[in-house]
Amino acid sequence: MITLLKMPALFLGMLAVFCCLGSFFIRENRYESGHLGETVLFGFIAYYFLFELISVPMMVLGAKLHLLAWVWAAVVAVLVIASICLHLGMWREWGKRSGGFWRGKTAAFYVMLVLIGIQLYFVAALQENGSADAAYYVGSVTTNLATDSISSFDPYTGKALDFFNIRYVFSMYPAANAVLCRLTGLHPLVVTKVILCMMTVVLSYLVYAQIGKALLKEKQMVWVLLCFISVVNLNFHTIFSNASFLLTRGYEGKAVLCNIILPFLFYLGLRMYQEKNGKRVWLLFFMTGVAAIDLTMSSMMTVPVAMSAVILPNLVRKKRWGQSRLYLLAVLPCVLVLGVYLLGVRGILQIPVVR
């Protein structure tokens, strides 16, 4: 019974934390936004950006998982309290707007809610996946908890590592999930295969909603777009589709990459295209690159390509050649990680485990 109460509390609590982090980012950087969904997405990026900056040094220095958990809890608590205290006016404004949220919604809006609800039920109660990647993500969370360490043991065998696995060394997503398990007492299977799968679904549709609002003049058509995407996701299941990752492997970093990070980069490209001055999105590009590495090392090649596809056409169109250095800075984290990875697989560079 306690577990059943903790599950929705953690799910809603994470959304609240994302919202607080996003509102702090928006207000402090003068980024104009009136959309709660956009704020949650910014907070999601900020959450994993900050976790990467804090967890990687602690892992390399041999810190214990319980220490990382308390440090992270303290950092998040300070930022949430600061956000609430500093942005009371914004919260009141959103509170006034929420009263009229349900007025004027078309039938497509309610159909959309039903379709997304079906997907949430599917990933929480029906999905099954026994791949090697699935075993790694759950096994890594479990191993970190059992050994009170950070990526210091092989999740497949439990063997103590002398050197960190170069394929996953900067991907701290399992460690972030282990921290959630440590702080809440929930089982790794519950956190990964239920809560995080549902979170991936919700955030992916928030991204698509923001893309729809940026592209469609008639805002009610956004709900039609989400209905269409829902139908595609429910019926397009091949190993090559992001729909398969969304509904059967939503707790894996690659699922978050293809369903949240890459569409979010496309959204940032739209914002850069539509704004007279695109400097406001550069910090978001940089933070997204770091957060993507935290989620999965696959980002080291995919994210720079995606950033190039949305940034370079904007630079050419607006003839802002001076912003090329900002583009290079945005892709730099992924390029550096790729360099470390290539040195590691060739045996030139190894990062020892400190105990």
Rank of each mutant, 00 (worst) to 15 (best):
M1W: 15
I2H: 10
F24N: 08
F25M: 11
I26W: 06
N29R: 15
N29F: 11
R30V: 13
L36D: 01
V40K: 07
Y48H: 15
E52R: 06
L61K: 12
L68V: 00
V71C: 02
W72V: 00
A73T: 06
A77Y: 00
V78F: 09
S83H: 02
G99V: 06
W102A: 05
K105C: 12
M112N: 14
L115V: 13
Q127K: 06
E128W: 08
E128H: 11
S131T: 08
A132R: 09
T142C: 02
T142E: 14
Y168P: 00
Y168S: 12
P174N: 05
A176E: 03
N177E: 10
T192F: 00
T192G: 03
T192H: 09
V194Y: 09
V201H: 05
I211Y: 09
A214Y: 12
L215C: 13
L215F: 08
S230W: 14
L234Q: 13
I239H: 00
T248K: 02
C258W: 06
I261T: 08
F266K: 02
Y273N: 08
A291D: 06
I293C: 13
T296Y: 13
T296C: 07
S298L: 11
S299R: 06
M300K: 14
V305L: 15
M307Q: 13
G322E: 02
S324Q: 10
L329Q: 07
V337S: 07
L343G: 04
G344K: 10
V345W: 00
